[in-house]
Design a protein around this nucleic acid. Structure first.
Lengths: 226, 226, 226, 226
DNA sequence: AATGAATGAGACTTCATTCAT
DNA sequence: TATGAATGAAGTCTCATTCAT
């Protein structure tokens, strides 16, 4: 078992905060990033249980033992991946801040539908975070919470600016995230489920088209316009 | 590995078709049901990889070897659970057929938000179906597709009856399912994410209240009413 | 089941060809040899099915998992043992090349009758090669074939040199090998069967005496000398 | 484990000796014979370890539990098969008693080379008798010894009658049996080993041709005729 | 700091044997 | 007497983690 909280000998937590890194710290950060990139790829392809440390090490082009110089155990890799993922998503949301409500939603949906790796990673993070008793849930919860918070901020801004009707922001932010996650998961299932989404679009699936459709649902709802 | 298609010595597939079951067939069906109930419980608690056949057998109150008299291997248990789950959901949707659009949605959302076991099971089925190379994806895909089809039928009926505006039914059915799934998954994460959903409700989370909120979003959308 | 052809990470096949081995390759070869020696011992005592990987590992004085760093699965151990065994026998036959026909036969019979381990190993290889559906027959066939070929070469040389009458070499080589194998197996059975072979020799069995007797049969036949 | 010596509730041992069998005893004997026939078939196809009691029961067209009404355990089946096999071989040898030495040998070799099932059964009996620690060796030893004795008797008769030179009968009988057994095993290996035996015979293997060739070796030996 | 061989706990699965019906 | 479902011990193999080099 992994003594929790230990992230190898590294100084991962400090990285984001400190600007003046020594050469040693920069090397460590680079190594950790290299490992997390490999881990994200393998987790998204094989799931957490199916990913072996051997394959992660090979993907990161280093020996298995080296992983353990930078991360305490396999679950720390998952936590690291979750945090890096949340960083990306939050940064992307903030980059959209200036757009109109509809454009923002369209972008967000489309961006998340676009990459299979990301869709699968989402699924892995969610299900392992909840179900794997070896995993320290709180860290992954926190990562997801940062995404939810960013979404709440976005919606609150839109309501405050009078660009959206005053719904319950907490529910809406979660429904919004849930739709993206669930859609990604469902989409990844493939087969007839996916086929249904491409039939009337000349057989060619387009994340942007799908983003438009879902945005339309969220903006206008299902009710008859009177 | 498991030679697919073998479900022990049982006659699981015939169950749905034949009305007159011999005593032997009834006993086999009862045993399979007993096993699947146990498997669903353990999968939902531990995930697929984390569930051991030993624990499933203990939960089903039988010896480990007995499982294999009714199911060929562990993955057949997952497929069986997926099929039983889809049966339940579809049956539930059909039982709501007479309700108004809004009531139906409220019921559906609330019903799925209610049980933690079901929320987690959904997650397990999705992520294992996609990521576990040992699993025969097609069977689980098919189970999910039956749910999607039932949802499409529900929406089509509402549109035909003039109770809903004519959105793309395929997209809407998937978005709808995705929201339920994703919400369930997110909700299960717990921590602050869940806390946000209970704060304004005197700290007591209510599936029905949540169903109302999400239904409102889906019916009326986010846009300002003009 | 075992994906055939995988012999751990090792470079077993290259051993015979390369003269300049790196230190790593030498260590791997040494480990493989250590394992095969242990496997040969346990297989010869317990048979293939009766031999457990646990016991082989204990005999080789290493952990069970270590076996699998050098051999892909249990059957690869058997194949390795068969190949090493064929190597030994062929080398021994070639070392006798200069002897007279009768001496050669005497040596061969005696050498094979001497070691119980070898007699039993022969039996295991033969019966598993044929009857165990998990075993890749071709590899073990090939090992035996090398022994047959060496025997054919020996007989052909004797005929060409005019030291033997021109019998069908293919049949004779097989009959010769068969007699050794069968004798070994029968001998191993023990009890009265073995007792019969020692009675007139002061109760002390001697492989050399037995080699002489069988060689006499093969050289002179059973027919009355006219 | 099987309490040795118990052969179910049956009266197997008495069968051969008593002429006046009650109806019950005849039924038991018929059942046992039915089971042993099935067991011989499955053992010869799968080996002892590879044969399952389930398959033997299916082949005998009865339920698994029924086997245990007639035989105490799996190894008793093997012993029963060995005894029945020895009965057959001895009876066959005695039926040849009137033939000339050469004809007798030709018949014996050919008869044993003819049936693949018999060749494999021989191999199974031998290797399990020696290597399987669960098997009571003495019973199978005794069965084989009866074959050896019959062969000794045959050879002794030939020597006494002046039709054979006075070799060591015990060695010759064993060498003879060994050659048949070993040839059978080798032959069963197949591949190139078997191919070598068919090449110069228009590619069609004939047990009779092989019997002739081996008999010639045994009668005339390998030595140059001077 | 990097390596990768060694470790061994634990998972899934098979199957001989028992016994209630 | 025949049945066949239930049992559970035991086997092979995987893989996260450690540590000597």
């Amino acid at each position: 078992m992994c003594r929790n909280g230990r992230l190898g000998k590294g100084t991962y937590q400090r990285m984001a905060e400190e600007e003046t890194l020594t050469r040693r710290e920069r090397r460590i950060a680079a190594r950790q990033s290299q490992i997390l990139t490999a881990a994200a790829r393998v987790f998204s392809q094989k799931g957490y249980a199916g990913a072996t440390t051997r394959e992660i090490a090979e993907t990161a082009d280093m020996a298995e033992g080296t992983l353990y110089n930078y991360f305490g155990c396999k679950q720390d890799l998952l936590i690291g991946v979750a945090e890096a993922y949340a960083d990306d998503v939050v940064a992307y949301m903030q980059s959209l801040a200036g757009d109109s409500m509809g454009d923002m939603m369209r972008q967000l949906f489309a961006a998340r539908f676009r990459s299979g790796r990301e869709r699968r990673l989402f699924m892995v993070l969610l299900s392992e975070a909840r179900l794997n008793p070896d995993i320290d849930h709180s860290k992954i919860q926190a990562a997801f919470y940062r995404i939810i918070e960013a979404t709440e901020a976005m919606l609150t801004a839109a309501i405050t600016a009078g660009r959206m009707r005053p719904v319950n922001v907490q529910v809406a932010a979660r429904a919004f995230s849930a739709t993206i996650m669930g859609f990604g998961a469902l989409f990844e299932l493939g087969g007839d489920i996916r086929a249904g989404l491409t039939a009337d679009n000349d057989g060619i699936f387009s994340p942007d088209w799908l983003g438009d459709m879902v945005t339309d649902l969220y903006l206008h709802g299902l009710k008859l316009e009177e």
